[in-house]
């Protein structure tokens, strides 16, 4: 593999793995605190799936990186600027409505991307994506249902969901940005160009928000900086503080 191609693939794998890791971590913060017992179980399940996907993506990333790291090394020993997750994933949970809205916005993207990745020319990517695609489809079903249920629920739940959408929507666009590396991966048939997924995503959002009686903000502005590590939010550092604590405080231990 040529150097540029390797970098592009590594970036892509980190983006997939880190997004799953950071979102999974966020979702796991709910454990024991959800509004309904069934939701507690479902959120734990979502977090579990995402951390499982993380392990697969980061394992492959570590192999491509070729510096003898493990998936755990990548997760627990990198600092914020080396993370490549979308900003959307690291935003704080807020109320249950915002958490579920964030989940839906992410699931919708994952459910469109992953089935395509399952056709990747890179067999390892295809294999991981095929497994993750099934989980994403299930997550989407749940999160879309909740967004519709709460959007079209009481006046209060509607207002909270609209506020969640307004807050999160400016982070959606980052999932569809493309750079030269993405173009190279697309040309090699490894992964589709992110921008090419946007129309399908918009149509899905429109349909669900319509059912949820929620209004999509009329803007294409997007925050970015997560997928290339240029500028994360202030929130990521705090998340890493708890997530990486043990590995940092007791280096070289076996757990």
């Amino acid at each position: 593999m040529a150097g540029n191609d390797k970098d592009a693939l590594l970036n892509f794998l980190l983006r997939m793995g880190d997004s799953a890791l950071i979102l999974g971590h966020r979702v796991s913060e709910w454990c024991g605190h959800s509004p309904v017992l069934e939701e507690d179980i479902a959120l734990a399940n979502t977090a579990l799936d995402l951390i499982g996907q993380t392990q697969l993506w980061l394992e492959y990333a570590a192999e491509i990186q070729g510096e003898g790291n493990s998936a755990d090394d990548l997760a627990f020993l990198r600092d914020a600027w080396d993370f490549r997750n979308f900003l959307l994933a690291e935003l704080p949970n807020g109320d249950f409505g915002r958490t579920m809205m964030r989940q839906f916005l992410f699931d919708a993207w994952a459910s469109i991307l992953l089935p395509r990745l399952a056709q990747s020319s890179d067999p390892r990517v295809a294999e991981i994506a095929a497994k993750a695609a099934k989980e994403a489809a299930y997550h989407l079903e749940r999160s879309a249902d909740t967004v519709v249920g709460l959007g079209d629920g009481t006046a209060e739940s509607h207002d909270r969901m609209q506020a969640a959408l307004d807050y999160l929507y400016p982070y959606v666009g980052e999932m569809f940005l493309s750079d030269e590396g993405d173009a190279a991966l697309a040309a090699a048939g490894v992964a589709p160009d992110p921008a090419s997924l946007r129309n399908e995503y918009d149509a899905l959002l429109k349909r669900v928000m319509n059912e949820a009686t929620l209004e999509l903000p009329d803007t294409r502005f997007t925050h970015s900086g997560g997928r290339d590590g240029r500028m994360h939010t202030e929130h990521l550092g705090h998340l890493l503080c708890s997530m990486q604590w043990l590995q940092r405080a007791y280096p070289g231990s076996t757990w």
């Binding site: 890791l21 913060e29 507690d40 579990l48 392990q55 627990f76 708890s242 757990w255």
Partner: peptide, 21 residues
């Protein structure tokens, strides 16, 4: 859960706590 030291431990603990629910 948010401080579990490895990905594997995080998953096991999540699965365990989910069982309790």
């Amino acid at each position: 859960i948010t401080r579990a030291p490895t990905l594997q431990r995080k998953m096991i603990l999540l699965a365990k706590v989910q069982d309790e629910a």
